[in-house]
Design a protein around this nucleic acid. Sequence first.
DNA 1: GTCTATAGCGGGATAGAC
DNA 2: GTCTATCCCGCTATAGAC
Lengths: 197, 197
Amino acid sequence: MARSTRESILTAAAELMRRRGYAGVAMKDIADASGAPIGSLYHHFRGGKVQIAREALANAGAAYGLLIPAVVDAHTDLGEAVQAVFDQAADDMAASGLVNMCPVASVAAEVADTVEELRQTAGEIFDGWITGGTAYFVARGVDEGQARDLTTAVIGGLEGAFVMARTLRSVEPLRAAGRVLAPQYRGTILAVRERVR
Amino acid sequence: MARSTRESILTAAAELMRRRGYAGVAMKDIADASGAPIGSLYHHFRGGKVQIAREALANAGAAYGLLIPAVVDAHTDLGEAVQAVFDQAADDMAASGLVNMCPVASVAAEVADTVEELRQTAGEIFDGWITGGTAYFVARGVDEGQARDLTTAVIGGLEGAFVMARTLRSVEPLRAAGRVLAPQYRGTILAVRERVR
DNA sequence: GTCTATAGCGGGATAGAC
DNA sequence: GTCTATCCCGCTATAGAC
């Protein structure tokens, strides 16, 4: 159960960055939140702050990539599945005090034009989400082109609604996005599938 | 034609912040980009960096609020209008080297939990966009609830797709969002209306 | 109202004892 | 592998000459 120092540093960094972005988090903040002293941060991550951010984003990206399939798994109607994804996000965000935004978009928006390494890492995560989501929907019988557009739009819709929700202090944008996106997929029945992965 | 010093400071700040966010822009950067020395920034904006950001966001917010109606004005089919909004955004972004993201979301995502005054300003801008967009669609015959959801989803979809587009260095997410959102509104005919405002 | 110089602070990063 | 002390730089903001 005892997580390694390395792991707790990454967890703390991801948690802080999803709230305050990249520049808004100081190495000292990560040290304090993780319980490790500054020296340990540089011991475990020679590349300093950028490296910590890269690994923290990659971890968070992998974790978040599982969420959409997990929610959709419980549904056979695609419209209901889409609505459930946005409602689940709204519930999670409300439960965590309107703070539950993934760190990937937060950091990506901020550094896309300044820290090339981080842009690239975030880009790979988005790519992975799109590829993974597309494969998931294809495995459940959706046409590939449509699966890709849907996945891209859902991810973009979630990220945009997260920003609005935090700023407006209301999860209504998430629910509205669900209400708008879901109806046209109602009646599209998802195939049962072999366990993927 | 000669803009005031005040105005050029705000323009420079908005331009920089839409690319680098709030923390990523230094007062010196704004001074250099606007041509005004540091002292002038504090002369015109007693509230320092936060005040400059607030006014820059408010200006940009007002300007961006006109864009969606301007694009939709040219259409009578709501589905075509929605597609046109996303395609226009994609074209603009491509034309400007994938950098044309509005500063409101950039800054909002970063400071929503840390600089309350900026969160509030950004929140007012989102509110204004939603209210204005809803009124516009209602004036063209759309049901109020649907108009509000559509406006919210379009704004969120644009902001999320902007982040993805910059990060992936491709405008494809914007076009995908349009392809997903537009179809269900195809066939909904917008009413001609008296000039609004 | 314009501009320079600088104060004062907090940032990332490092060295080196333990 | 842990932790402290410290360096150096760049940031916001101010003072005050012009």
